[in-house]
């Protein structure tokens, strides 16, 4: 059984996995980091989005062994010392969630957008969220939250 090592939210981790073990399974089952969700398991809904070496990817369509040596950030790595990340705070403030199932993926996807584009227009935010599906909000407040977070992060 292959052994895999990576850095998750700043902490070095190692685990035994099968070749077929998905990154999202490794995060949730081996590391108990259950904030990363599995929605569709077909790389469409984006509930499983995490960052691998600074880029957002779908952890349900990545093998754990492919992340060997990588730096992973999950939703659990976003808050600092108990303070919500500005994107998380904006989702709370602007009611960017209802049931919350898609939210971890939305936040991680938005974080990748804002590191590329610090002031995205509404169409740019909507286009970027192509790979994140929400069945509650109608997206309106998610878009509002991401633009508010962008403004807060620009200072």
């Amino acid at each position: 059984m292959p052994s895999v090592s990576m850095t998750v939210n700043g902490k070095a981790v190692t685990g035994e996995v099968e070749g077929r073990t998905l990154l999202v399974e490794f995060l949730r089952q081996n590391l108990n980091l259950t904030g990363t969700h599995v929605g569709c398991d077909t790389s469409q809904c984006g509930a499983c989005v995490v960052h691998v070496n600074g880029k957002s990817i779908k952890a349900c369509t990545t093998l754990a062994v492919q992340a060997e040596g990588a730096e992973i950030i999950t939703i659990e790595g976003m808050a600092t010392n108990g303070d919500l990340h500005p994107i998380q705070a904006a989702f709370k403030e602007h009611h960017g969630l209802q049931c919350g199932f898609c939210t971890p993926g939305m936040v991680m996807s938005a974080a990748d957008l804002l590191q590329r584009n610090s002031n995205p227009s509404e169409p740019e935010v909507r286009e970027w969220l192509e790979g994140n599906i929400c069945r509650c909000t109608g997206y309106q407040n998610i878009v509002k939250a991401i633009q508010a977070a962008a403004q807060a992060m620009r200072g």
Partner: peptide
């Protein structure tokens, strides 16, 4: 192609 996460991989 696809969405941003698919394009990253």
């Amino acid at each position: 192609i696809g969405d941003p996460q698919v394009r990253n991989r």
